[in-house]
């Protein structure tokens, strides 16, 4: 599965895919895109690496993705709760009439989708990797 040609091609392509995913996420406010598609594109970049490389790197990667997964979900919660501290209701716009709040939520959602999809893929693709990373 991991012949040198595919490895180098995968490594060569991944930065551009990740950059495009970050672009789609961050520019979700202006152009079509946003949290969910951006997160998926980022995940596809990482999955390219997972497919082309053997299990040692993936083992290290697997444990981190689960943490990012948790981080992303509860970061959205925190951003929402911070709306209450500011004084408004849940999920109020922290910076009214500009798009920082949207970009922030975008990033959080993208992080969540990216980590979740990667963890899911690792689970289905390399079943034994996930086992040893959780116990």
């Amino acid at each position: 599965m991991s012949s040198p040609i595919i490895n180098t091609a995968g490594r060569a392509l991944t930065p551009f895919i990740l950059m495009y995913g970050a672009y789609v996420t961050l520019f979700g406010v202006l152009s079509p895109g946003g949290g969910f598609p951006g997160g998926m594109i980022l995940a596809s970049g990482i999955i390219l690496i997972i497919v082309t490389h053997d299990t040692e790197e993936i083992k290290a990667l697997a444990s981190h993705t689960e943490w990012f997964d948790i981080l992303g979900a509860f970061a959205f919660l925190l951003v929402g709760l911070s709306g209450i501290f500011v004084g408004g209701a849940y999920l109020t716009n922290l910076w009214p009439d500009n798009s920082f709040m949207l970009i922030l939520l975008d990033i959080v959602v993208a992080l969540k989708v990216f980590a979740g999809t990667t963890a899911l893929f690792i689970f289905f693709f390399k079943l034994e990797v996930v086992k040893c990373s959780t116990d």
Binding site: G28, G34, F76, L91, M101
Partner: peptide
């Protein structure tokens, strides 16, 4: 906050639904 109508609905008008989705 955003020119992208879908984005403004998803994250601003109906951010609570997006929270549920996440």
């Amino acid at each position: 906050g955003s020119i992208n109508l879908v984005e403004s609905i998803l994250l601003n008008y109906r951010a609570y639904d997006t929270f549920g989705e996440v």
